[in-house]
Simulated scan of single mutants.
Amino acid sequence: MQNWAGQPVRQLVVAAAGPARAGIERVLRRVLAELPELLATAVVDVATGQVLAGYAASREFRPGAVAGPNAEVVRQLHALLGALPEQQEQLEEVMVTLRSQVHLLRLLPQNRQFLYLAVDCRDTNLAIAREVMRSSLERFETLIG
């Protein structure tokens, strides 16, 4: 599943194992239910850049292709925060705005994984997308913690 070549379109694929599997699947199913027009979503391991679960609305959006670079962004931002004099802040979310798309990364509890979401600006309100991510991850926290 590393590059997700030939990944089924509009189908949730879960590769995670262990106790977190059910929670990760619930998070993505909730995101899909709340944002049915999204372009792609995934849960990604920060350390390895591996997709633990993902969904793409079309073949152009491959969560596996962006997972590694997005994980590197998160690692670099953690390094940056560690280098700042005020180390009390924690990374919560990264937003990349493009002309017609918004890509959001929101860290899961313990900062070991993040939820990735790509939406079309014409179809999805940014505030709604951010709230869906936040509330979905709150529920995940109660499932595992």
Rank of each mutant, 00 (worst) to 15 (best):
Q11T: 05
L105E: 02
E141P: 00
V31Y: 06
H103M: 12
M1N: 03
R75I: 09
V46Y: 09
E37G: 12
R130H: 05
V43Q: 03
V14D: 05
V94P: 07
A53L: 11
R130N: 01
V74G: 12
E93V: 08
A22S: 10
A47D: 11
A5Y: 07
A33T: 02
A5H: 04
A118V: 01
F114P: 00
L98A: 15
L38Y: 09
E92P: 00
A40S: 13
L39T: 12
V13N: 11
F140Q: 00
G54Y: 08
L38A: 11
P109T: 05
A83Y: 04
N70K: 08
A22I: 02
Q101M: 11
I128T: 04
L117N: 05
A56W: 05
N125L: 14
L35G: 01
L115W: 04
V44R: 02
P36A: 13
Q50D: 10
E37N: 15
R26T: 12
E89H: 14
A15W: 15
E86F: 10
L80Y: 11
R99E: 09
E131F: 08
F140C: 00
G6T: 07
Q113K: 07
D123R: 14
V9W: 12
L28M: 11
R21A: 13
S100L: 14
V51N: 08
V43S: 00
L77T: 14
A127M: 06
V74K: 10
E60V: 08
A17T: 14
Q110H: 11
T48S: 15
A56H: 13
G68F: 14
L77S: 14
M133V: 05
R139P: 02
L108Y: 04
L108K: 02
N70T: 09
L35W: 04
L108N: 01
L35I: 06
E131K: 10
Q101V: 10
L39N: 11
I24W: 09
L105Q: 05
E34K: 12
L126T: 04
E86T: 02
V27D: 05
Q11D: 02
V73Y: 05
V119T: 15
Q110F: 04
P8V: 01
G82D: 09
E89S: 12
A33K: 07
V66G: 11
L126I: 10
A20Y: 03
A67D: 07
E60Y: 09
E131D: 03
R139T: 11
P36T: 14
L137S: 00
G49W: 12
F114C: 00
A129L: 06
L28S: 03
R139F: 12
R21N: 04
A129R: 03
A40T: 06
D123E: 11
A56R: 15
L98D: 05
S100F: 14
A22D: 08
I128H: 05
N111W: 04
C121M: 11
R30P: 02
